[in-house]
Design a binder for these strands. Structure first.
Length: 399
DNA sequence: AATACGGGGCA
DNA sequence: TGCCCAGTATT
């Protein structure tokens, strides 16, 4: 293609996409506001997360923390609780750190300079571009997965979008395409097209505003683009979990604990559990998958005798763990349920057992390790739990 | 460059 | 049920 044709193709794209967006844009709650804080919160929530999931969270979050100051002043546990179920919880912790910095250093005004906003916790190339363009209409690119898919197809680019340098290349291209004075609408249009028309599977080319000059479509390659290396399958971990029921003054309550300050699900609450065995010999991706798929969940209603030996071995394992690692003497009993939970890099395959404190005196709050608590069903609203534990707790309290 | 970090939707 | 989706921080 000649250079002149490339420029025509780019100009056509910019104009038609912008017109299409202004005609067809969805009525999303954060689009009814120009408040940079509202837009920032929406963009952080939208990282790795679909619009329909985000909407109710966004309303609740801004209802609870309506201003930069309100979020800056809130206890972290309340912020985490408001984020419960949304995933990637470092987003919430980093957002609050960043908002505190905006409050202290910038007088509560979200910075409108690339350098300043990019230095905030949790604000990377995408989020800085999104906030600058949408809230301040600055001509900065906002390249997310939607944008890379759209550009790969329209310009028929076979660069691997999993590579960091491809994102850098796409940012240059996306910036060139921004029409004068219309950065916010154009960037949103690019993402909107990817989300609603130029979808990952079976794109709706016939309704696409730029189909006419889409090089990927003209080459008949829209189904093969974008090129993207596959992620490694998650590593399986067999785990045992306990629902420890209180007695006496703790009757009706279960024992929960807070996770460590750093790492996976940092500072969230959970039911006590342990890894059963380290699959240290599981190296190759194929073996990883085979191992992950091999685990078969136990069905409810199966004759307990079938699993008698396994249950006894598991009881011994987790009782030993609770006594040795946690210094809580526990007796494990009935199997409750099997539950599977897949993170992006780990798959938890968990068997849940009922348990009781073996030594009643150790069940007194003062004698528990500091990160353990007795929790009644009504108190679930006070603690932020990852989804996998909410599923188990709901199952337990509902039966 | 590779890995850690959640959860949901769709065929 | 199996596959796909993909921003930021850290190392």
């Amino acid at each position: 293609m000649t250079e002149m044709n490339q420029n025509l193709q780019k100009n056509y794209f910019s104009k038609h996409l912008l017109d299409w967006y202004r005609e067809h844009k969805r009525d999303l709650p954060w689009r009814r506001s120009r408040d940079p804080y509202y837009i920032w919160v929406s963009e952080v929530m939208l990282q790795q997360t679909r619009v329909d999931t985000v909407i109710p969270y966004w309303h609740r979050f801004l209802d609870k923390f309506p201003t930069v100051q309100a979020l800056a002043d809130a206890p972290e546990e309340e912020v985490l609780k408001a984020w419960e179920g949304l995933g990637y919880y470092s987003r919430a912790r980093n957002l609050q750190l960043a908002v505190r910095e905006v409050h202290e250093r910038y007088g509560g005004i979200v910075p409108d300079e690339k350098e300043a906003i990019s230095s905030l916790k949790g604000v990377g190339p995408y989020t800085s571009g999104a906030v600058l363009s949408i809230a301040y209409n600055k001509p900065e690119p906002a390249v997310d997965g939607n944008v890379m898919r759209v550009l790969s197809r329209y310009f028929n680019l076979d660069d691997d979008i999993a590579k960091p340098r491809t994102r850098v290349m796409m940012e240059k291209l996306a910036q060139e395409l921004i029409p004068e004075g219309a950065a916010g609408d154009f960037n949103q249009g690019l993402m909107e097209l990817g989300a609603t028309v130029c979808t990952p599977k079976s794109p709706s080319c016939l309704t696409c505003p730029v189909m006419e000059h889409c090089a990927g479509r003209i080459a008949g390659k829209e189904d093969q683009l974008p090129v993207k290396t596959k992620a490694k399958p998650p590593r399986p971990e067999r785990r045992l979990m306990l629902l420890i029921e209180g007695t006496g003054e703790h009757a009706g309550k279960v024992l929960i604990r807070q996770r460590p300050q750093e790492g996976l699900l940092a500072r969230m609450w959970e039911l006590p559990h342990m890894e059963l065995e380290a699959n240290s010999d599981v190296k190759s991706d194929k073996k990883r998958q085979a191992k992950a798929g091999k685990w078969v969940k136990r069905k409810e209603g199966t004759d307990p005798l079938v699993y008698k030996q396994e249950d006894e071995a598991y009881h011994a394992q987790i009782q030993g763990y609770m006594a040795t690692e946690e210094h809580i003497p526990v007796t494990a009993s009935d199997w409750v349920m099997d539950v599977e939970h897949t993170f992006s890099h780990i798959q938890w395959q968990m068997s849940v057992y009922r348990g009781r404190i073996a030594d009643e005196k150790a069940g007194v709050q003062g004698f528990l390790p500091f990160h353990y608590r007795w929790m009644a069903q009504e108190e679930m609203e006070k603690y932020a739990f990852p989804n996998v534990f909410i599923r188990v707790l709901d199952h337990y309290f509902d039966q």
